[in-house]
Write a protein that binds this DNA or RNA. Structure first.
Ligand SMILES: [Zn+2]
Ligand SMILES: [Zn+2]
Length: 175
DNA sequence: CCAACCGGTGCC
DNA sequence: GGCACCGGTTGG
């Protein structure tokens, strides 16, 4: 679009929403998440975020009180959210080491897909281009990846219960 | 300084 | 149409 036909812009060739935030359906990672798995991998470096954080589960965006100059609006609007720290991905203390981010972690500014907090994956804000119809999503994904986490061949009802996508059980305890 | 979030872009 | 990666930026 704006980039003008410069396909070279993103040499990666690929493109799209990295986190999943865009596609509420990108939970495919979470789908595969089963019981706790003991990954031999160990985080090479220190983690900046760990444990529970005080943020508004409603919006998720942490509020930065007091005026912080221009970088952070005094209004305390959305800036950067932090992982809930209770969801499975958040509990993953080890990187899968197989996802593209893990392989490119050196150059990738993204966290391991397996470790991506489900909360952050969900609606970041009421404004987005993607995240709307999860209908064709599954159909499209089949074409793109050619693989579906589930075995369901065709069944719109078989889709993951997004309705039950509610957080683990800390949302109510928060606030 | 590093790690990670978030927005935007391009390809399928 | 929607997803996947890059890249800038924030946050600690
Ligand atoms: Zn990974
Ligand atoms: Zn989480």
């Amino acid at each position: 679009m704006a980039g003008a036909g410069s396909d070279s812009s993103r040499a990666a060739g690929r493109a799209g929403p990295d986190d999943a935030r865009g596609a509420a359906a990108r939970n495919d990672d979470a789908l595969s998440l089963g019981p706790s798995q003991g990954d031999p991998l160990t985080l090479p470096t220190r983690r900046v975020t760990s444990g529970a954080v005080n943020q508004r589960p409603e919006i998720g965006y942490k509020r930065v009180g007091t005026s912080q100059k221009e970088s952070t609006p005094p209004t305390g609007e959305k800036r950067k959210r932090k992982p809930c720290g209770v969801c499975e991905p958040c509990q993953q203390k080890t990187n899968c080491g197989e996802c593209t981010y893990c392989k490119n972690r050196k150059n990738s500014h993204q966290i391991c897909k397996k470790r991506k907090c489900e909360v952050l994956k969900k609606r970041p804000v009421a404004t987005s281009q993607v995240q709307k119809s999860n209908r064709c999503f599954w159909a499209k994904r089949r074409l793109h990846r050619g693989v579906v986490p589930r075995n369901e061949t065709s069944s719109p009802t078989a889709e993951p219960a997004l309705s039950s996508l509610n957080l683990p059980a800390f949302d109510i305890a928060n606030i």
